[in-house]
Computed example of a mutant assay.
Amino acid sequence: MNSLIHEATVLISILILLLIFAKIISKKVEDEIEISDIEENKKYILIKDENSKLYRVQAIKNFGDVKKGDIGGFIEKEENLSHVGNCWIYDNAKVYENGSVYGDAKIKDNAEVFGEANILENSVIKDYAKVYGSAEIKGNAEIKDKAIVFENAQVYGEAKIYGNASIYGNAKVYANAVVSMKAEVFDNAIVATNSKIFGFAKISQNARVENRKIGANIVS
C-alpha cells in the first residue's frame, strides 16, 4: 500500500514538473513570436556613434531606394524617424529633439530637422538646409542649399526653397512657388501659384503673392 502511494506521489510530482516545463516553453515561444513581430514591423536599428550624442540608423530590410545594411544619418530616438513608409535619413543629416520624418520624406546631406518640425509625404530636405520650430514641410516640397524654415511656417505642394532664403512666422509657401537667394517670407504672408521670390525681397504681414516675380521689393 505504501509503495502504491509513493509511486502515485512520484507520478503526480512528475506531472506537475511537466506542466511547469510546458508553461515555460509556451511563454518562451510567445515571447519569441512577439519579438519577431516587433522586428518585422521595424525597418532600421540604432547604432551608437562614439563621436555624437545621436544614433546612426541602419536599415534591416529593403525599402524604397534603401538596401538592407545601409547606414543612414543620425537621430536622437526612434520617434524621429517612422518605421512606416520609405522615409529615410541619409548621409550626415540629423533629426533630433522632437523633429519627425514620415511617409516617403527624405533628409539628405548635412540637413537638420529639430524642434517640433514635421517632414511629411514626399518632401526632401537636403544640402545644409534647416527646418525647426513647429514648421511643417509636406507634399513634394524641397528645401535645399542653406535655406531655413522655422517657427510655424508651412511649405508644401511643389514649392522649392533654396539659396539662403528664410520662411518663418506663420508664412505659407505652396503650389509651385519658388523662394530663393536671400528672400524672406514671414508673418502671415502667403506665396503661391507660379510665384518666384528672389534677391533680397521680403514678403510679410498679410501679403498674398500669386503669379508674380519679385526680386527686390518689400511687399506687405
Rank of each mutant, 00 (worst) to 15 (best):
I148H: 09
A201T: 09
N170A: 10
Y156V: 04
N217D: 13
A192D: 12
G85L: 02
E50W: 01
I148N: 11
S100C: 08
Y132K: 02
S123I: 07
E151I: 07
I20R: 12
N118Y: 09
E32N: 07
G215I: 03
A201K: 05
A216Q: 06
I25S: 09
L17M: 04
V155M: 06
Y156L: 07
V191R: 12
L17R: 08
E210N: 05
G169K: 04
T9N: 10
N51V: 02
V66M: 02
S195L: 09
S52C: 08
G139D: 06
D187A: 11
N152M: 07
D49S: 02
S13Y: 03
F63H: 08
N194A: 03
K126T: 14
S82I: 11
Y168C: 14
K94R: 14
A141R: 08
Y132S: 12
G157F: 07
K43C: 06
E32D: 10
I89W: 11
K182Y: 14
G139A: 02
V131R: 13
I197P: 01
L54I: 08
K61F: 03
R212K: 14
I33D: 02
R208W: 03
I20W: 09
V179E: 11
I148T: 07
K126Y: 11
G215R: 10
K53F: 06
I161P: 13
A207E: 04
S204V: 11
I119K: 10
I75P: 05
Q205S: 15
Y156I: 09
K106H: 07
R208G: 06
Y90F: 15
A207R: 06
D31T: 07
A153N: 12
I125N: 01
N51H: 15
S13P: 04
V179R: 09
K61D: 00
E76Q: 15
S26I: 03
A159P: 09
I16W: 00
M1Y: 11
A135D: 05
A177R: 08
L54M: 12
V179F: 12
I47T: 01
F198A: 09
